[in-house]
Amino acid sequence: MRTLGDTWRWLTDPAHWAGDDGIGHRLAQHALLTCGCLVISCLIALPVALVLGHLGKGGALAINISNIGRAIPTFAVLVLLLLTPVGAWGQGPTVVALVLFAVPPLLTNAYVGMREVDRDVVRAARGMGMTGRQALMRVELPLSLPMLLNGVRLAAVQLVATATLAALAGGGGLGRIITAGFNLASTPQVVAGAVLVAVFALAVEGAFETVERLVPRRSGGPR
């Protein structure tokens, strides 16, 4: 109980919220890193998943290849990248490691969502004269959107938690609060950093769940 009380006092101390090492600045760094890696991951994974899902070819192979990233710890990838020329690019190793970590759920969910679209609906769209591109954008994508957003949500929450590793590579973010706490042998600061990461992850989870509820689960055909 004493640790919890000390942690609360640490979190509510105004001095710990100001400055370059303050919670506010570290939270902004964490959010920027998470959003940047999520955008890059989406730009890589979603076009591939949508095209393969539309064609119905090569999806299983792509998913299996991307899932290899789940079997390799992100920390191990980060350490290996630090030993390569990428390590000289500042945040480069962290960004690459996090992107590799976020791609599998994005690719898998988007591909599965595309393949779960009723093929009769797609054939009806083509029978109405739609091109493959039009059927993809106006029929398959809207119908697969709930599953796609679920993949984005999973990737975002995982990135929030895993981005704490950026501190080990000299980066910013809430992980710096935790590592600084270890360096100072300050248990309240370590616990406070962990609490901040957990609260941030829960906030992201809640935001995406709200967005998913607002997305209509369309089941009809083309209009």
Rank of each mutant, 00 (worst) to 15 (best):
G173D: 04
A192V: 06
V204M: 06
L174C: 04
C37A: 00
G24D: 12
P105E: 04
L61A: 15
M137V: 14
G181M: 09
T108S: 12
G129V: 06
P142N: 07
L174H: 05
N67K: 05
F101I: 11
T94P: 03
E140C: 12
H25E: 14
S186I: 10
M128T: 13
A169E: 11
L50M: 14
L83I: 11
G90E: 03
R223C: 10
A207C: 09
V95K: 10
L154M: 13
F208V: 01
R217D: 02
Q91H: 07
A155M: 05
S66Y: 01
A76I: 12
L43W: 11
L98E: 03
G206F: 13
D6I: 01
R119N: 07
G151A: 06
A102S: 06
V48I: 15
L98S: 05
P216Y: 06
H25S: 15
V77G: 01
V112A: 12
L168C: 11
G90L: 02
G171I: 12
T162C: 11
L100W: 09
R133P: 00
G173I: 03
V86H: 03
G172V: 06
L78D: 06
H30C: 02
G113L: 01
H25V: 14
L83G: 11
D21L: 11
L184D: 13
V121M: 13
L46E: 06
L81I: 03
E205M: 10
G36Q: 12
L165P: 09
A207I: 03
R26Q: 15
I23Q: 02
G113Y: 03
T108L: 09
M137I: 08
A125T: 07
G92R: 10
A163C: 08
G5V: 08
V112E: 12
L33D: 00
G24P: 06
S66L: 05
P85F: 12
C35I: 15
G172P: 07
L136Y: 10
A60G: 11
T94C: 05
L145K: 00
R70W: 01
A180W: 03
R119H: 13
C35V: 15
R176C: 07
Y111F: 13
L143R: 15
L141P: 04
I68C: 11
A71Y: 06
L165T: 06
T84L: 02
L184K: 02
T162Q: 10
G69A: 13
K57R: 15
G69L: 06
L50R: 05
I40R: 00
V152A: 06
G129P: 05
A18S: 14
P146W: 08
R26K: 13
A110I: 05
L55M: 11
V48G: 08
A110W: 00
I177S: 10
Q29I: 05
T179A: 08
D13I: 12
T210E: 00
N64R: 04
A201F: 07
L33W: 07
N109M: 11
R26I: 01
H16W: 13
S66V: 04
A88I: 06
P85N: 08
A135W: 06
R138G: 01
L82G: 13
R213L: 10
L165H: 04
T74N: 00
T12E: 04
A185N: 14
R217M: 09
L168I: 13
G59T: 04
A161T: 10
A49R: 01
